[in-house]
Design a protein around this nucleic acid. Structure first.
Lengths: 155, 155
DNA sequence: CCAATATAGTTTGACTTACAAACTATATTG
DNA sequence: CAATATAGTTTGTAAGTCAAACTATATTGG
């Protein structure tokens, strides 16, 4: 073994230019790292990151409608419509027409949905602990607050 | 005007459950907010966020090859191959075979690429200043450092 | 030297996520 | 009741991603 190889990539150190001083760039790097790690959770539960947060919101707010979810997540309503359809097909959520206003659906978790959400939540908490390991005391709260402010900066 | 409407979405406050205490969730929210805002930059320069960071890296490291970019950005080499093809078609970069090892391409910005990058960089700096407006003194450096540590947590 | 193996990069196919526009259906109000 | 607004669906399109099979070039043990 061990034939036909060369130094792993570049011998010279790479110049990141200003890239690493951009919050936009670093936020993307962090976010894609988290998502790559989430693949493990997806394997075990069948839930993608987006599905996980939708189920969490529906679980905590039974009877919530799609348009509310749309504003919370800043997605297009057509995008959400497809996501909801998939969750219905997987029988993780169910819905019925609002009796007072037939334009709305009231969304709820199914028994199976609540179960899957519970499993996924445990794994997500684990993932969060892994992140905590890289943070000092108090930094988590600070980070969350800064991220919240950043999101609001572009409203 | 003003007919057939109702309260904007949900009257009751929404329960975010644990969602807002998850770094994973908040990082995604912040990142998508930044990307939505980047649309303005894309309109003016024709560059997507991914193209911007590729051009920045190529600009700062003339002669860099694709496999190095792949490891820096954690993408699949096939994904990068397509991105490079598009940048070539737009004539923002050019490449020539490494004379010592014909498997490598040496990538460089074209004159046009350097120009577009310069324009986009100015707009990105502006975007960063907008984020700074939500941060207190010293927080930017702290945030960048935490994001860097998070990325490394999942290596 | 050359066969075997490793590496750089491309092509193709599939999948995911997203948005926009046109549509259906229901509700409100002048 | 006609006009308008809102909730949600369908369809088309595009970007971004990965994986596998492929081409081409390079290295090295025997």
């Amino acid at each position: 073994m061990a034939r036909g190889r060369k130094p792993p990539t570049q011998a010279d150190p790479v110049d990141f230019a200003g890239l690493r001083s951009y919050i936009g760039y670093m936020a993307r790097q962090a976010q894609t790292a988290v998502f790559r790690d989430f693949a493990r959770i997806t394997e075990e539960t069948g839930l993608t990151p987006g599905e996980f947060s939708l189920l969490t919101l529906i679980g905590a707010n039974p009877g919530i409608n799609q348009i509310t979810l749309v504003t919370l997540h800043n997605l297009d309503k057509s995008t959400l419509s497809l996501a909801i359809r998939d969750l219905m097909r997987q029988e993780l959520i169910e819905r019925k027409k609002d009796s007072r206003d037939g334009r709305y659906y009231a969304l709820r978790l199914t028994r199976q949905g609540a179960l899957q959400l519970e499993k996924a939540t445990a794994l997500v908490e684990e993932q969060e602990r892994k992140m905590d390991a890289t943070l000092k005391a108090g930094e988590r709260a600070q980070l969350l607050d800064m991220l919240r402010r950043l999101s609001k900066a572009f409203d």
